[in-house]
Simulated assay, not measured.
Amino acid sequence: MSEVVCVTGASGCIGSWVVHLLLLRGYTVHATVQNLKNEKEINHLESLEGAKERLRLFQMDLLDYESIVAAISGCAGVFHLASPNNVDEVQDPQKELLDPAVKGTVNVLTAAKEIGVGRVVVTSSISAIMPSPNWPADKVKNEECWTDEEYCRQNGLWYTLSKTLAEKAAWEFAKEKGLDVVVVNPGTALGPFFCPTINASMLMFLRLLQGCADPYENLFMGCAHFKNVALAHILVYENKSARGRHLCVEAITHYGDFASKVAELYPEYNVPRFPRDTQPGLLRAKNAAKKLIDLGLEFIPMEQIIKDSVDCLKSKGFIS
């Protein structure tokens, strides 16, 4: 009998990678989607290797507790990835982003505690680490750094705020209720993806190739390959010594560094040039994800991430 785990938000770019790697490792996976009748959500999951034997799909709503319990029942572990993400303008931040992120996280953890799950891996983000304008200027940002909530509210960074509040709620719950929670904080996740739809970070990359000059000033800290992000989740789940937050970036870089590497590799695209420092005050660092490196994660370098991303966008018809 293989270990049974639940992956929420399984149909997304990172979620389907987590499911893929879990199935390859012999796990039985309860994968949650928003709508079982939507082929765009389920077809790519059902075609993964091992899916016929060990994948079960569940329709889940983050604000419907019973649907969460049904998906987690019988599971030894949970990977909680489901969280609304909206890169464009938000009309009602509370309803669109904050409630589903925060209440949804608490609902998943409550169900996990009730069912007796061993460990929950929560997908947070670098959005819960920065913007952090009060962090010491001479210190490289790490897992101790938290996003400034007030700054987010004043600047309308609602997605960033939703990820920060959701992660804080997860830690509070873990402490109060004695649930074993561990967190991954991925940077901009890129690379090849299984799902037919594009996620926010790949959309950002696509727009860069198309000439978008937004420097993503408060939203970029470095990138990571989808495979590395998924593997990070599994490593912190399987290594019982893993504790706390885990920054997941191949290096801390500026968006300007990233864009110039893309322009250098693909001169045929209309990639804008940025000043070198697009992230004011952010110190660059090579092995910033030391906690994950110590667990054995070997990061795919930026150049390969870019090439894999372009190849995938071409193969799926997003660019020619």
Rank of each mutant, 00 (worst) to 15 (best):
V7C: 10
G9E: 11
G12A: 12
I14K: 05
G15P: 14
V18W: 09
Q34S: 14
K40V: 02
H44Y: 01
L55E: 04
M60P: 05
D61R: 13
Y65Q: 13
A70P: 00
I72H: 05
S73M: 01
G77C: 09
L81D: 06
A82K: 12
K95V: 11
V106M: 06
V108K: 03
V122R: 02
S127G: 15
S132G: 06
S132A: 15
S132D: 11
P133I: 03
N134M: 12
P136W: 13
E144I: 00
Q154H: 04
G156M: 04
K163N: 04
T164M: 05
L165I: 07
A169V: 08
D180K: 12
V183H: 05
V183Q: 01
P192I: 00
F193M: 14
N199C: 14
N199A: 07
A200P: 00
A200Y: 03
L203Y: 11
M204L: 12
F205Y: 10
F205W: 09
Y216E: 08
Y216G: 05
E217C: 04
A224D: 01
V229D: 07
A230G: 07
A232C: 07
I234L: 14
L235S: 05
R245E: 02
R245T: 03
F258L: 11
S260G: 01
V262R: 12
P267T: 05
P272I: 14
F274R: 07
P275T: 11
K286I: 08
K286V: 12
K291Q: 09
E303P: 09
K307T: 14
